[in-house]
Amino acid sequence: MDLSEDDLHLIQRVAQNDQQAFLALYDRYAGRVHALTLRILNDPMMAEEATQDTFMKLWSRARLYLVERGSFVVWLLTIARRTALDRLRMEGRRPLLSDSTDPEGIWPVLADSSRNEDEARWRSLYFMLHDMPGEQRRVIELAYYQGLSQSEIAQELGWPLGTVKTRMRAALEHLRREWLKDECAG
């Protein structure tokens, strides 16, 4: 089965208010969305609410999805991340997102990751992150899963801002080099 084509067919049906197609997408991606919202919110009840909100946004915005601008799952997970981080902000726990994480803003430069959609690729990135030195992994997680800026991370961890910048740059450079190397080799 060509998953991206199947997703496209389902999302087109959702755009026409097809509830069965919507539930099919939910059954397919709820685990991913919920894993992300739970990672960000670290609260099972809030994570489930954010998961619901994400899928309700999918229901109401399905017609806005443009296949030529990126894969469906990336679009959906970007909505989930945004929804969860906004929830953090509403709770007064975290500051506003930088607009560079807006799905509309990043799409044009994204490759279609549906070509690399196999679980192994994503799992390898997950393990790369976990195998990193703790101080590097920490800055990545605070930035991406908590929506903190570098200066906020410095404040949160009590580190000099320059140290945060250096560690974040080193961590991301490592991930980019190693992960994309796998992609080129694969």
Partner: peptide
């Protein structure tokens, strides 16, 4: 770098609600 960011979105093991 943005591809890495998008990878981080999907990297977490699925966890069904």
């Amino acid at each position: 770098y943005q591809r890495v960011g998008m990878g981080l979105l999907s990297a977490l093991p699925p966890q069904a609600p």
